[in-house]
Write a protein that binds this DNA or RNA. Structure first.
Lengths: 345, 345
DNA sequence: CTGAAAGCGCTAACAT
DNA sequence: ATGTTAGCGCTTTCAG
């Protein structure tokens, strides 16, 4: 079946420079110039070419063009999971920076898996991306690279790599600690997260606590799920007793959501009995009961910074290289009802 | 650091079939065959070629290949905003279906804007995507298309288009209505959402209510924000009085979050005084207080269905065409504490 | 200002 | 089984 042929020399195939050249009666070189360097062509012929082009609905083929110029205008974007809001936000702002320059993001999910990430990078390379951004890399070092394939790293473990954007997690933990202290809380506890991020947040938290006369400091570790937020909180409560806790910092908002629930069920009031503070400032943080105080991770700004870094490396001489100093982002404290009783509202 | 050069004649330019052909002493055609149709080549030479290829770190250029085969193995993915969790989930599952087939998603955000969407589609086409999926299209009809550029629509307004995946919003509204009725609630109200989606959800809701002796039915319209959820709830309360409401359905979970807050501040208990039900089953629905009963939108399944539809159109004869019947997805009721008092837990 | 010609990297007949 | 040849759509010298 089908339009296999017979009608036109080529019914299916989109119009090409050659077709236009024939219509107008010029060479394909002139057509190319009229399109890419208009001032190099006599207005008269240029117009005839442009007119013919729009008449046949001409679309330049990026395939042909890319082949000769050697760039695809594609940028790889490796993300643990684009379905996670935080990563989605970062991806979005990467896109916003790239788009005005005619660059498009090619997506790949790594699921936080070392091997999948390397595979993704290779796959993207096979699609001829001009460069790439990798969020929360697990395999930074082993990513296939080269002068023509700059990878920008947007993650906590990128230390020492040539193009990196990081959140200052230590500062974030410090912020949380200082906030609880400033509230007069002295029986504190922390539910840490896994990995480098979690370690840094905890380090900052403890640093803020140092030299303060605390009555107690509890600790547990979670995996950034609501579940472990609850369980860890319960465990801490059992250890220190209902009166042994008046300030709780968790390494993520999701865990904090679990903590809020657990505390409520234990009959403790937030923030009166215990002030709670999370990390990330996820979309839902302000919707919880009470609204969650948290340490905000500037996802959009970080995504934008990574994109700009990539752009910058585009214009570099091949001998030059990006700074080894990561671009560090400062987190920000967002105070809500889980740490300070609502004034009114 | 690193292998800046000196090793190869050409430090910068990646290796090509030609280079390998020269090294091994065969024609470039044989190299191509050894790579793409191994069995057409003598094991001996094949091995020498493969060995040489890996030695020089050969990576086939997709640009050259695509140019001749006429496909880019790129799929466009137009999304209102990849930063929205629901869309992120859909994107992720599209990716999961596409990846095993060597297809990659090229991302573009439309911000729910008609013009931006058309621009995005054109931009993707310029990047030679083989086809595309457009989520929540505002401009379905005016998207540049053709037999070689199948667009699959994943949205409520795609009716009548050739490849479409839709959520049965009417059924969703009905589910919500039936649930409230089954709970014995008779003083109901609805906070509708804008657009076709909102209309359908409301239509289904009202349909379920028909023929039931209701004491009152309130109504307001919101724009899917927490703000308008609150305001609408307040307005309804003012209109019908504190005792005039015992069941509230909102067209989105975010609005429902606002409603929960408003009801609490009005001193009404959920679910005892009023049962609340949202729509979407967003990530945070289960984290609210009380956990939100909602109508679940099967985002992952819908994304996967759209991807499969696209794949299907890949293999179609050019005269064939996809069904005009949209693939309809049934929403699912998720009962939580906002409509039924917790048994225990 | 314009045309002719070469070539980007690869595949696909068509020969051998 | 392998080589030859042509050409995908486009840009870019190099001449004129």
């Amino acid at each position: 079946m089908s339009a296999r042929s017979a009608v036109q020399p080529n019914p299916q195939r989109p119009s090409s420079v050659r077709q236009i050249a024939e219509i107008v009666g010029v060479s394909i070189a002139t057509v190319s110039r009229a399109l890419n360097a208009p001032h190099q062509v006599t207005p008269a012929t240029r117009n005839r070419i442009l007119e013919a082009a729009s008449r046949v609905g001409y679309r330049p083929s990026p395939l042909g063009r890319n082949l000769v110029v050697g760039r695809s205008h594609l940028v790889g974007l490796i993300v643990p999971n684009i379905g996670f809001p935080l990563y989605g936000l970062m991806a979005r702002s990467v896109e916003d920076i790239l788009e005005p320059l005619g660059l498009r993001a090619l997506l790949a999910s790594s699921d936080d898996d070392n091997d999948r990430e390397v595979e993704a990078a290779q796959s993207l390379l096979r699609h001829a991306v001009d460069g790439g951004i990798v969020i929360n890399s697990r395999a930074s070092a082993s990513l296939p690279s080269g002068p023509r394939y700059p990878w920008i790293h947007l993650s906590p473990e990128a230390a020492g790599l040539s193009g990196a954007v990081e959140l200052d997690n230590v500062a974030g933990g410090r912020l949380a600690g200082q906030h609880l202290l400033s509230l007069g809380r002295r029986r504190l506890a922390h539910v840490a997260g896994e990995g480098r991020e979690g370690d840094d947040r905890e380090a900052g938290f403890l640093e803020a606590l140092r030299d303060h006369p605390l009555e107690a400091v509890g600790r547990a570790v979670g995996d950034y799920s609501e579940q472990t937020g609850r369980i860890s909180t319960r465990a801490i409560l059992e250890r220190v007793g209902r009166d042994g806790l008046d300030g709780l910092f968790l390494a993520s908002d999701i865990m904090a959501a679990g903590a809020l629930r657990e505390l409520r069920e234990a009959g403790l009031r937030v923030p009166e009995d215990v002030a709670v503070i999370g990390f990330d400032d996820a979309e839902f943080a302000g919707l919880l009961t009470p609204p969650l105080t948290t340490v905000r991770q500037p996802a959009k700004a970080m995504g934008a910074a990574a994109a700009r870094l990539l752009l910058q490396s585009y214009t570099l001489e091949s001998s030059e290289t990006l700074s080894n100093q990561p671009v560090l982002f400062a987190p920000e404290l967002v105070v809500r009802g889980s740490s300070v009783a609502a004034h009114h509202s």
